[in-house]
Amino acid sequence: EVTIKANLIFANGSTQTAEFKGTFEKATSEAYAYADTLKKDNGEYTVDVADKGYTLNIKFAG
């Protein structure tokens, strides 16, 4: 089991951190699915992958 950390960075400057656990593939998939649910209210997003994929910096356009 691994932990994927998602740093969520919103257009208004606020930030939030979420963690997803499971296999690497499952946790990564859940992180992207979570970002997709936030897209409606926060706009499109870009992802900067860090720490060999264990950290995702997800920035929303607003």
Rank of each mutant, 00 (worst) to 15 (best):
N42F: 06
K21V: 10
A33R: 09
L38W: 08
L56P: 00
D48W: 08
Y32N: 04
F24S: 06
K40Y: 09
L56A: 01
T46N: 09
F10N: 03
N12A: 06
N57G: 08
D36A: 12
F20D: 00
T23A: 09
F20M: 02
K26I: 15
K26L: 09
N12T: 08
V47D: 02
E44M: 06
K52E: 12
G43P: 01
F24C: 03
Y45K: 01
E25H: 12
E19D: 06
G13K: 12
G53Y: 02
A31S: 04
A35W: 02
K52V: 09
Y34C: 03
L56M: 07
A27W: 01
K26D: 11
E1S: 12
F20P: 00
G62E: 06
A18S: 11
E44T: 07
K52S: 10
Y34V: 09
L8T: 03
K39A: 09
S14A: 14
T37H: 07
L38S: 02
Y54M: 14
G22A: 05
N12K: 08
G62P: 12
T28G: 02
F10D: 02
N42M: 11
G53D: 03
N12M: 06
D41P: 04
V2S: 05
D48S: 15
F60W: 11
A6N: 01
N42W: 13
T3D: 04
A35L: 11
A33M: 14
T46R: 06
T46G: 12
A35K: 00
T46Y: 06
I58T: 01
T17M: 12
T55V: 10
F60H: 01
A27R: 00
V49N: 10
L38T: 02
T37M: 12
E19V: 12
D36G: 06
S14D: 15
A61W: 05
A61M: 09
E1I: 11
A11S: 10
D51F: 03
Y34P: 00
N7W: 05
N7R: 09
D36M: 08
K5A: 11
I4Q: 00
E44Q: 09
L38N: 09
K26S: 05
G43Q: 03
Q16K: 15
G43M: 13
D36N: 12
D41C: 03
A11V: 15
D41G: 10
N42H: 15
E25D: 15
S29R: 08
K26H: 11
V49R: 07
D48C: 06
I9M: 08
Q16Y: 10
A50W: 11
I9F: 11
A11K: 07
I9G: 08
F60L: 01
G22P: 01
A50D: 10
D48A: 14
S29F: 10
V2K: 05
K39P: 01
T46K: 06
K52R: 07
A61T: 13
E25Y: 06
I4R: 01
K52T: 13
T37A: 12
L56T: 01
L8P: 00
D41W: 05
K40T: 13
G53C: 03
E30G: 07
D41L: 15
T23S: 15
N42K: 09
Y32K: 15
E1K: 04
E19I: 08
A27L: 01
K59C: 03
I9Y: 09
T46P: 00
